[in-house]
Design a protein around this nucleic acid. Structure first.
Length: 503
DNA sequence: TCCCCTGGCACATTTGAATCGC
DNA sequence: AGCGATTCAAATGTGCCAGGGG
């Protein structure tokens, strides 16, 4: 009841929306690298309307915006063919999760640590994307259940999609405008500004197709040439940063939209210039299983923050009360972002926008199932990749799970309740309970809770923290393996018909 | 030949340990 | 001894570029 109301009342505003719009209008591009690259602008939101005392889990995922592959021709993005098979979808759980509504509302919620990669075998838990494809980030707000997990029968959640955050993944920037916007706005790229900062812009303003070569560029070229002439230096050690991320893996494979199959990104961007926010809410009613997202681990940068003035440092004692619950950071004082993967046949979402949301008190949060603007995208058969988990200092996670039949049925909607450890273990997709309910009706067809298996993921309550517990990839008896520095789960995520079977 | 992708580079920012002073 | 401020080196995050591969 209150959870429902809370979810309904939650409002999310995209931070630095104007900046996002600038990129959006130029056709946002995000670099993806093997080691993982952050997004810029970073995904930050301001959340309001939460119940201050209720605990929520905030997570994001990035789903295909359509099923096309793009190429940059004639200074614009054009469809270049059909999209490649979707990468294993992964969820990025905000490191502060679960936290009270008061905590989330107190400060900006930042997902700036999220990284994108094109490494299909990425072991760090970064979100895997295909280059030259269009994607749409989404924010999910999930009400944590009594065990600080989600997926139980009363778990409610909603999804927010800001169209201006859509982007095309690239391995190197294609559009000079984007490059310049990045350089001008990203502090880390200051080195490319310099006094000749305006070179490119000036050249563009002067109507030149190609930018004036800046001194920086000349310098780099000289240096580079020199290096090549003097012989390749010894191969530098690639210092990978085993960013400790726990991950659940799921198959996304569902384009957010197919509405503009022939439109280059620019067109889409233009048409979505107005504030548009897809807003979906869903409440699990009869899904009596808990989703234990045991991805917690110390995260020194407890604050999902930047230097924004509205940011507050989290209290050291934050969440101490959760230490004895599943999906909580028992005894953890710092956190690490968590990546979850699962089979996601979803894409269900309604349309709306931030403002609309804010001004639409009547917006029904339980609309996910009925609002499916994004056509389903066949992901059936997409196999899981073995995913080495990285989950440092994660609390003991003992997934007590049912053994659902693992047939995956593409569905145009996400169902956060389908995390299932047993499937993880088997590397099989999970079928979630059919969360097709679009209202608050008390009865929603769904899987029955299996006796003795209240949660998909269940972190032993009150168990001491075992930072370096070692889990194997496919535990024999329903326990997930965690390996230092982090562990990841491969879980199925689907809202398709669930077929839970007792084993 | 073209289109992407990769790895290495320089530069800037961020982080965290060490140091210092009160 | 404890605390806060400062310093500094290492780690990390950027875009650029040449070269390589399909």
């Amino acid at each position: 009841m209150d959870s429902q109301q809370n979810i309904e009342n939650i409002k999310v505003v995209l931070h630095e929306r104007e900046l996002w719009k600038k990129f959006h209008e130029a056709g946002t591009e995000m670099i993806i690298t093997k080691a993982g690259r952050r997004m810029f602008p970073s995904y930050k939101v301001k959340v309001t309307g939460m119940n201050p005392k209720t605990k929520y889990i905030l997570l994001t995922d990035i789903v295909p915006a359509d099923d096309h592959r793009y190429k940059f021709c004639d200074n614009k993005w054009m469809v270049a063919g059909k999209a490649e098979p979707a990468m294993p979808g992964r969820l990025y759980v905000h490191p502060d999760s679960p936290a009270t509504g008061a905590h989330w509302m107190r400060q900006l919620v930042s997902f700036q640590k999220l990284k994108l990669t094109n490494n299909h075998l990425d072991p760090f838990g970064h979100i895997i994307l295909n280059s030259m494809h269009k994607y749409q980030p989404r924010l999910h707000i999930v009400k944590a259940d009594e065990n600080n997990a989600f997926g139980s029968k009363n778990t409610a959640y909603c999804t927010h999609v800001f169209h201006e955050t859509a982007f095309i993944s690239v391995t190197s920037y294609q559009n000079h405008k984007i490059t310049q916007l990045k350089i001008e706005n990203n502090p880390f790229a200051k080195g490319f500004r310099g006094s000749e900062e305006g070179d490119l812009r000036v050249s563009r303003l002067q109507g030149k197709d190609y930018p004036v070569i800046s001194k920086n560029i000349v310098r780099q070229r000289l240096i580079s040439s020199h290096n090549h002439l003097t012989g390749k230096l010894g191969a530098g050690v690639l210092t990978g940063h085993p960013q400790v991320l726990s991950s659940y893996q799921y198959e996304t494979g569902v384009p957010l939209s197919n509405r503009d199959p022939q439109d280059p990104l620019s067109n889409h961007l233009t048409q979505t210039r107005d504030p548009s926010l897809l807003y979906h809410c869903f409440k699990h009613r009869d899904n009596s299983r808990h989703l234990e997202l045991g991805c917690k681990r110390p995260y020194l940068e407890a604050t999902p923050v930047s230097s924004e003035e509205h940011y507050f440092r989290p209290t050291p004692s934050y969440e101490s009360s959760l230490l004895s619950h599943p999906y909580c950071t028992e005894g953890i004082t710092s956190r690490e972002p968590c990546m979850y993967s699962s089979v996601d046949t979803e894409s269900g979402s309604g349309t709306g926008d931030t403002e609309d949301l804010a001004n639409s008190p009547s917006l029904n949060c339980n609309m996910w199932a009925t609002m499916q603007p994004y056509p389903c995208y066949g992901v059936e058969g997409v196999s899981y990749q073995p995913f080495t988990a990285h989950f440092t200092n994660a609390g003991p996670v003992t997934p007590v799970v049912p053994h659902p039949s693992s047939s995956m049925v593409p569905r145009p909607q996400a169902d956060l309740s389908v995390y299932n450890a047993s499937s993880v273990q088997r590397g099989l997709p999970i079928i979630s309970p059919s969360s097709s309910s679009s209202s608050c009706s008390p009865v929603i067809p769904g899987p029955r809770e299996r006796p003795g298996h209240p949660s998909l993921y269940h972190k032993k309550t009150g168990s001491p923290l075992h930072p370096h517990r070692d889990f194997t990839a496919y535990p024999a008896q329903g326990t997930l393996s965690i390996r230092d520095p982090a562990y990841q789960y491969q879980v199925g995520l689907s809202s398709a018909g669930t077929h839970w079977t007792d084993s």
